[in-house]
Structure formats: C-alpha cells, structure tokens
Design a protein around this nucleic acid. Structure first.
Lengths: 339, 339
DNA sequence: GTGATCTGCTCTAACGTTTGAGCAGTGGCC
DNA sequence: GGCCACTGCTCAAACGTTAGAGCAGATCAC
C-alpha cells in the first residue's frame, strides 16, 4: 500500500504537507496548486491512511467493541444493527465480541482495552452475572457502557424501559378481561427480569387483581425455559387464562409446548410476550408482543460511549422514546367462559 | 497503559531485552534472573503489548474481517460462531462487518484491507450479487475467502454441499411416498439456489419422477418469500403433496401461510427444509430439516484465510464432513390418499 | 597467553502517522 | 531601509514495537 511518503514523492512535496492536506488539517497553509497536486497524487496511488500508524500516533483507534452473551439471539442482532449504524454514522468501526463461556469475558474485554484495540466498549452481560474482573475493569476508568444492567459505583449504562414493557403486556391481557394472569419470567438474578417483574405486578395491583406467587416462574429466557414454564404454570389450580412471557424466545418455546400438550392458543390460553422479532410473526398463532426498542438501545449505547470517549461525559440512560409498543397479533383473546 | 519502556525501567534493563523476553523470541539470550525480573516487572505494571505499535512494526493486525449480508439471519449467526471460535483458536480477533445496502460493501471491504485494519477477509455476498468493485478487490491479491459463492478467476472459497442437502430433503419426501414434490427455491442468481436445484432434480430423476417446471418457485430466502411461494405452488393443478424449501426462514413463512390458508401440515402437505436452526424446532409443527453445517463452514473459512495469510496457500473447498444431516420432525408424513 | 567462541546484554533503525517548530521568501508599512 | 506579518512550505520528534547488529566480559581450546 502507498504511504504518505510515496504520495509526497510523487507530488514533489514533504510528507507533512501531504498529511496536512489529506487530513484536512486547519493549520494547513498550502497553495491551491500544491493541494491539487497532492490530492491527485494520492488518488493516483490509491492512498489510504494506515490504520496502525494513525492509531499509534493519535492513541485512538476509532473502534468501539460490543460484547453480547449470545449472538444467536435475534434481539441481540437487532441491538448490533443499531450499534453498527450509530458507529458508522460517527466514523467508528464496530468490533464484535462474544462473551464466551470458556474464557471469562472479563479477560477478553480487558485485553481489547488494554492492548488499545478499542477506544471504548459496550457490554451486555448475560442474565445479570457480572463476569469476574468486571469490577477492576470498570474501576480502571476505561470508557465502558453497560447494557440493561448496572454495576455498583459505575456510571455509564443504557437500559430499556422493561417495567413499562411488561406492564403494557399485562395490561393488554387485563383489558381483554383476563383475571388469572401468570408471568413466565427470566432468572431471578437478571436485571431485566427484576424490572419486568415490577411492571407485571404494577398492572395487576392497579387493576385490583391478586398477585399470586405461584403464578410466576423464573426459569430463564430460552425456548426450552419457555416449555418448562408452560408446564409448571399449567399445573396451577386454578389454571391461568393468560400468560405474559418476559422474552420472545421463551414465548416461542412456550407456544410450542402448549401445542404439543393440546392447549389451544388463544382459546384456552392467551400468550403475550415482551420483545418482538421477526420470529414472533411466524409462530402459530402469531404472537402478540410488546416491541422493545433494541435497535435504538444499540444506537444509544454507542452514542453514549463515543460521547464518553470524545468529551468525557458519562450518564445512565433509559430509552423511553420510542416507547415500548404493543403489537396485537393472534395469540391473545378474551378468556373463554368455560374453565 | 504501561509500555515496554516502563517495564524496562522497572527491571533495570533495555527495552529490547524486555521485548524479547515477553514475546518469547527464540533469539533471546537472557539469564534466568533477568528474565524473572522482567516478567515480574511486567506483571506489576499490568503490561500489555500495544496493538498499534505491534501492528505498525509487524504489518500484521491479527484481525480477520467477516462480512455477511444480514446479521439478523440465524444461519449467519451460526456461521459467525464458527468463525469466532476458529479465530480465537488461532490467535486472531474477528471483526464483523455488515454488508450495507446504503454504501456498497465493496468500498467498506476495500477500506478495511487498504487501511490495514484486517489481515484478511471472509465474505459472504448476498444472494449471488457481486458488489461493485469486488473484481478489483479480488484482483488486488488481498487474502479473501468467499463463502458459498465464487468469482471468475478467484481462487479461495468455502461452500456447503447444497446439492446433497437439497437431495436429501427431496429423497426424504420420495421415501415417504410423495410423487408430486415442489421446490421453493431462492433467487435464480443465487449460487446456493443453483446448487440446491441440482440436488432436487437429481433426486426426482433418480426416482423416475417427472420434473415439472411449474413446481419450482424462485422467489427468495425470507419468510415473506416463503409465504409467496406457498400461495403460488398451491395454485398448481394438481397440487403438490410435498414441498422442499431451500431455506429455513422461507420455510417458516411458508408454514405460517399454510396455517393461515387452512392447509394442514403434514396431513395435506409435507414440508421439508434445507437448513436447520433453533427456530425450526419451535414452529408448529416442528420442521423436518436438513442440517447444513454452517458452524463448520465458518471455521473452515477462517482457517482458510489464516492459512492464506500465513503461508500464501489458497484453495476452493467444499464442506462435506460433517455431511448434511436429515432431522425428521413433524412437518413431513406420507401423502394422504384423499387428494 | 592468545585468539575464538559464547553469553548476556544494549544500540539503533524502522514501521506510517501527526504536529509543533522553524525557515526562506514576499509584501506592506512607517 | 528596516521591521513586521504573512504565506507556503520543510524538519524533526514522537507514538510503541521488533529485530539485526554490535559490544563488553567470561570461558575455552591449544
């Protein structure tokens, strides 16, 4: 690849002159003729600034890292999409890392930052488990934004309004006339599960409905977890007529289990889920869902970390605009009279 | 962050000594005592080699890029997973790029390579459309491995055995006794669609069944495309009793459309798809699928590009081991007698 | 005792970039 | 004519790393 030196030689000027012209430095005092010669020479040689040289000199890589626990999850791909778009818009490149089960992800993140591969990181820790070494990492003062979670003493996070999301889903079932509404939640330690739980309860209490302990499962967010949840909840007496599922993947599994067990949705059981994705449209029946703004959260997270990198400002942020949005499909209906 | 200089000062030796010890250079002739002092000093200071410095000096970044057309696709996430694992195993970092509709991805790839951000690239072009500038890029001699596609004159690709995959799915329906088997394929220009088509036809011909032109649609690989395909195929006279779908996402859409139109699966219609993913298990009925080894392809692609980077060797490769594997679920059954 | 060899280091240049400082040449002002 | 300011450049140092060359001192063969 052509270097500044090559371009300088071709244009018959010094390296500094080329550097200043090509990087549009305001301190560049160059005649129009020289400028044109330089630009032309750069074009002729297909010059591109060397990343390593620039990074070394400026101590900036223009790269932000994104670590998510599971790439296979449709929600995280949406998040990634948002993060990608925002990065591109701000002239950053996105480096994707998977939080690996084998090696503690804290080590990987520390490496990326310590080696100067990234200027900052956006991190989604899985289900509320803070990876080992996360404390040190955050304490080191590196630009890190946490997604959907917080860490004691750390400022810098972006979260969705899970409480409102769960509340909207629950309210939808209440509006349909359901009174026995269960909640298939995530693991107790999960930050999002905690917040969704609050929303679920709020809606019930406001409507004057009882909050039954045995109407909540706290199994997890996978399709298999959803199957388990359905089977547990269907053992309750009386059976719930509606279930709010805290996660779309779990909802898909729950729906499949209902099918397999001969429970008709929505005739026997209404199912509403928090989260929407293209997969929710294609289940049978199509899932009523509250769309959480993962794309926007991705954008916000990158915006936040870039602001931190460039100005030092840091904040905790909740995405309330756009708000969680109810998308009614066919998995919810008024409860049937027969019980 | 601590530099080699800091470590050298603390250990009371020269920078070169530190560099050689910490990078385990074979040419390092150092006494055991000095080595220990250096290692200790590095540990004390939490030394990590600066990425930019190293990259600048060695002209290697130890990063490979992966570009896929659509991150939201479950298949590509599997591919990414494989690519990630292989990269990690070989000491590389994976840089993820999305092929953007807005800017031609050729430009992005050229940038990554031209700026020296990556040592090589693994590229999956969407549906067989070669992005503008791809020719120049490949001609430039940069280490590039294409996934599931080829380019005239370019050596360096990894592909799945789509022909066998489609053949197995078709054969499965034949074995069940189906004779009117349709094929919901991808766009005509797609490389994978071409190969799958061959497998489908082969199976029919071998079984002595007619190949009907109007039993193939070539709409695309999305869920919506699957809906369209179903509706077209169900207009045929006589109706097919089984459909092989070339892509799992399309199959999910096709299944949903069948449900909506009152076509019972598998009683009225058997559906088998090429590709498997967790989403296929959770449809209703669960989809019979031929598992294509996307994970292994991801690994193979990275292995291939790394070999190219480190030794210069390049090859075209087809993943045949593990072979495509039929996973029978509940969307296929013998044709009913009534038509 | 002398030259050769080996050990255990250090010196130095280089990778490509950015950027503060410097330096000729020109024009204006008094 | 002397001074200043300005224009249009160039010089050189620095970022952190690697690696070839070099250099004292010790050891060894003869």
């Amino acid at each position: 690849m052509a270097t500044l030196g090559d371009v300088a030689a071709r244009a018959g000027v010094s390296i500094s002159a080329v550097s200043r012209v090509l990087s549009d430095a305001p301190s560049a005092r160059v005649s129009e003729a020289t400028r044109e010669r330089i630009v032309q020479a750069a074009k002729d040689l297909h010059y591109r600034p060397n990343f390593a040289g620039r990074a070394l000199k400026s101590a900036r890589t223009q790269v932000v890292g994104l670590v998510v626990p599971d790439l296979t999850n449709a929600l995280f791909t949406e998040l990634m999409h948002g993060a990608e778009d925002e990065s591109a818009a701000r002239g950053y490149t996105l480096l994707l890392g998977r939080a690996d089960d084998v090696r503690p992800e804290g080590e990987m993140i520390a490496r990326l930052i310590g080696e100067g591969r990234v200027d900052g990181m956006v991190i989604q820790v899985g289900d509320g488990v803070a990876p080992a070494g996360m404390g040190d990492l955050l304490a080191s003062g590196a630009p890190i934004v946490l997604i959907n979670s917080t860490y004691p003493g750390h400022v810098g996070s972006v979260a969705l309004d899970d409480r409102t999301g769960a509340r909207i889903a629950t309210q939808h079932l209440i509006d349909l006339g359901h009174e026995r509404i269960a909640f298939a939640n995530g693991l107790p330690r999960s930050f999002t599960a905690k917040r969704r739980r609050v929303g679920y309860k709020e809606a019930l209490v406001e409507a004057g409905l009882p909050v039954r302990q045995d109407y909540e499962t706290r199994v997890g967010y996978t399709a298999d977890n959803g199957r388990t949840a359905l089977r547990r909840l269907m053992e309750r007496d009386p059976r719930p007529t509606g279930i709010v599922v805290a996660n779309v993947n779990a909802a898909i599994g729950l729906l499949a289990a209902a099918r397999a067990d001969g429970i008709r949705v929505p005739e026997d059981l209404s199912v509403a889920t928090v989260h929407d994705s293209w997969t929710a449209e294609n289940t049978w029946p199509p899932l009523t869902a509250v769309k959480m703004q993962f794309y926007d959260m991705g954008r916000a997270a990158v915006r936040s970390v870039v602001r931190r990198i460039e100005t030092g400002e840091m904040a905790d942020e909740m995405i309330t605009d756009p708000a969680p949005e109810l998308i009614v499909r066919e998995s919810t209906a008024p409860p049937s009279q027969a019980v």
